[in-house]
């Protein structure tokens, strides 16, 4: 269901728990679906002994993908016109992630109603792991 321009206002925000206690298996599942098999995301031995990280960590794109679920749940399927993020901190196995999308502007492009949203995903320590913007077409 798409949002209606007549029913939303700037400042409205929507939150969702994306994942609780992120499992290594989900990171492997994302490697398989996306095709990004970088050992940094599945191979503890390589990641700790060669790359020098404390453990394997999630693909940034997994977090962006999970955050995308909040957006499509809010604005509806096929409604996004753009979606962009910066990856600000790594996401580790065991992390719990929460995302919030906030309407920061409502505008019109010709006859089309558009909402601009800010989106932020944080981990269990309140650290921002992904922050970005999205825009979506609304119903009148």
């Amino acid at each position: 269901m798409a949002l209606k321009a007549s029913e939303v206002k700037v400042g409205d925000s929507y939150s969702q728990r994306l994942v609780e206690d992120l499992k290594r298996t989900q990171i492997v599942q994302y490697a398989g679906s996306s095709g990004d098999y970088n050992p940094l995301h599945s191979d503890e031995k390589f990641t700790t002994e060669v790359a020098g990280y404390p453990s394997i960590f999630a693909h940034g794109m997994l977090t962006m993908g999970m955050t995308g679920k909040l957006l499509t749940d809010v604005v509806g399927d096929g409604r996004l016109t753009n979606y962009g993020v910066r990856f600000t901190n790594q996401v580790w196995p065991g992390d719990t992630l929460d995302a919030t999308a906030t309407i920061v502007a409502l505008r019109r492009d010709g006859d089309t109603h558009i909402a601009d949203l800010e989106v932020v995903t944080t981990n269990q320590d309140g650290k921002v792991v992904v922050s970005g913007q999205a825009s979506a077409k609304l119903d009148p």
């Binding site: 994306l18 679906s33 996306s34 997994l62 999970m66 679920k69 399927d77």
Partner: peptide, 10 residues
């Protein structure tokens, strides 16, 4: 498979 991996059951 992609939707499953990002935890989306839509």
């Amino acid at each position: 498979m992609f939707a499953r991996s990002v935890g989306d059951d839509n």
